[in-house]
């Protein structure tokens, strides 16, 4: 079965072709980050206007790369939610009309299920059950995953997502939107021991996270260390980044360990944009060796939003694909409400 995947939930248009026999055939991504940078954040209306220009050209590129025609597609998967309603509707409209034209079934995919299952696209793929840390600009969740659609939420952030804390701290440090990746880059050159930042909720006794206090601590540090012109010198800025990243990685790592201990599971899966963070990967790899568990990551290119994870998750849910073409989107959608596949 050849599945076309369409992702348009936020600021990236992702298209992919996944074959249930031979695997991922092609995937393409268009990021809108440059467009939104001038506005200091994602403008939903502009995001939607861009998606509608990108979906078909990216689809054509994927088809050409895979040596397939649109008529070869057996089913179409699209991100039904959660996300920006107007942006989701673009992918949903094209996907359903394509299904209608080709008389092929269409399946709406939960964006976070896409992320959650994306490590299954890597080699070696993890076996169920596993603990999943879903960590991105919009989410920080720990889940027990016992099968497709069998997700138990163990803990989540009570305020900012980890990626959001990166971006907000970047802003406080005078780095332009979206500054998270720049914080990581500067952190590599900084001294993490010069400043000590708090590890919020590390001893809360549960698996929840909180990152807004860390952001406030960064703000206070910036105020204290700033020069007369209100900026930080480069070395100080790098040191703050290093301390900040170490704090986040420390909290994420220790909560993952607690989740493994609590459930007795031996496999950990990391998904979402922050999963590309090098220090996080190093910290988890190190812990995995010491504590004897396995850790799995999606291929680096599939850490951000992408179409491959949507095509793959759709392929896992073909029994829910329908051909009534009566579509809608779910800007808010609880992952735990999904049926087992």
């Amino acid at each position: 079965m050849l599945v076309l995947g369409i992702e348009s939930s936020c600021d990236e248009t992702g298209i992919a072709l996944y074959d249930t026999d031979t695997g991922l055939l092609a995937h393409r991504l268009h990021s809108q980050i440059a467009m939104h940078t001038e506005y200091g954040g994602v403008v939903p209306e502009l995001a939607s206007r861009d998606h509608i220009r990108r979906v078909l050209p990216l689809t054509e590129t994927c088809l050409a790369e895979a040596g397939k025609a649109i008529a070869d597609v057996d089913a179409i998967a699209y991100t039904e939610g959660p996300g920006l309603a107007g942006a989701l509707l673009v992918g949903a409209s094209v996907a359903n009309a394509l299904g209608f034209a080709l008389q092929k079934p269409v399946v709406g995919v939960h964006h976070l299920e896409g992320h959650l299952l994306s490590p299954l696209l890597a080699e070696p793929a993890p076996q169920f059950p596993f603990i999943a840390l879903l960590v991105s600009g919009g989410h920080t969740q720990l889940m027990a995953v016992r099968g497709i659609g069998q997700y138990e939420l163990l803990g989540e952030t009570v305020d900012d997502a980890a990626g959001e804390a990166f971006d907000k701290s970047a802003k406080l440090l005078g780095l332009s939107y979206p500054g998270g990746p720049q914080v990581s880059k500067l952190a590599d050159t900084g001294d993490a021991t010069r400043f000590k930042l708090p590890r919020p909720m590390l001893h809360s006794g549960d698996l929840d996270f909180s990152f807004s206090g860390l952001k406030t601590a960064v703000l206070n540090l910036v105020k204290k260390e700033q020069q007369e012109d209100g900026t930080l010198d480069d070395a100080t800025r790098a040191d703050v980044c290093a301390a900040f990243q170490e704090a986040i990685v420390d909290v994420l790592t220790r909560k993952c360990l607690a989740a493994l201990k609590q459930t007795g599971m031996k496999r950990l899966v990391i998904a979402g944009g922050v999963g590309a963070n090098r220090q996080l990967r190093a910290g988890l790899d190190d812990a995995a060796k010491r504590r004897r568990f396995e850790v799995f990551y999606p291929p680096l290119a599939l850490c951000t939003d992408n179409g491959a994870m949507i095509a793959f998750a759709g392929a896992m849910r073909l029994k829910y694909a329908a051909a009534d073409y009566q579509f809608g989107v779910k800007p808010r959608w609880d992952l735990a409400s999904l049926p087992a596949a």
Partner: peptide, 9 residues
């Protein structure tokens, strides 16, 4: 989006 999907399909 529907016109695109129909036309392309």
């Amino acid at each position: 989006g529907i016109a695109q999907g129909l036309g392309f399909g």
